[in-house]
């Protein structure tokens, strides 16, 4: 059954923030109430909180540490986070930054996640050094699962090279993702990318397509 709580986690640079933002927007566009949680206790910028304006405009509630994107460099969790577990009619999207350090902080809510049910999506990008092979991802997944005491339920392939992504990027190392999927015993639920990145998706994978928009542009990019 589709759960209402979705956790996005993975190595930094996997693109999980953009994936989580896109997931939240898609759910909102279906008419659902949506809350997104900026659960990044490590990174100072390029985080969910940077999309505050867009989220406001779309009517998506943002829960973020009150010091996110400010000059206070403090690894704290958002104060009002527990409210998402009480809002039974709300889709809750967690963007968990900071690798296993971030996951460790998330683990304190394990009893709530288990009580309400959750899906935890492992966002992977094979174009990142140190995480290119199935074994690297497996090690990262284990570290996150051990730290958070939660289990991944599926994989989101988000292999990309930022602005240099082309139609061949997403599946360029797909055998590693298939291997990872077998080893973890979970399926690759989604293959993610912007429209241009998705122009070459094999027919049998059409149903897994997750088309994204970029919601956190660089300061010099005109939207």
């Amino acid at each position: 059954m589709e759960k209402r709580i979705h956790i996005f986690s993975g190595h930094f640079g996997s693109g999980k923030t953009e994936v989580a933002l896109n997931y939240a927007v898609k759910e909102r566009e279906k008419g659902k109430k949506v809350t997104i949680i900026d659960f990044d206790i490590v990174n100072p910028y390029f985080r969910t909180n940077d999309a505050r304006k867009m989220l406001n405009e779309k009517g998506i509630k943002l829960i973020a540490n009150s010091y996110a994107s400010s000059n206070l460099d403090m690894p704290t969790v958002p104060l009002n986070l527990l409210s998402v577990f009480d809002d039974n009619d709300t889709v809750a999207v967690f963007d968990v930054g900071g690798d296993d350090d971030g996951a460790l902080a998330l683990g304190q809510y394990r009893k709530y996640f288990e009580k309400h049910g959750y899906q935890m999506h492992f966002v992977v990008n094979t174009k990142r050094p140190l995480t290119e092979r199935a074994e690297d991802f497996l090690e990262m997944a284990n570290r996150i699962e051990t730290a958070s005491r939660l289990k991944f339920t599926d994989i989101y392939n988000n292999t990309n090279l930022s602005v240099q992504t082309d139609e061949n990027t997403l599946f360029s190392n797909y055998e590693e993702i298939e291997k990872l999927s077998r080893k973890m015993g979970i399926k690759t639920a989604r293959n993610c990318g912007t429209r241009a990145a998705l122009s070459n998706v094999p027919k049998k994978l059409k149903e897994t397509v997750f088309e994204m928009k970029i919601y956190i542009p660089k300061p010099w990019e005109i939207q």
Binding site: F12, G13, N125, K127, R128, P129, E132, N160, L161, Q164
Partner: peptide, 14 residues
């Protein structure tokens, strides 16, 4: 072969 890196990491590898 291209990879995606954070500036800080790229300095380290370079």
């Amino acid at each position: 072969e291209k990879v995606l890196m954070k500036g800080n990491e790229a300095i380290g590898e370079a």
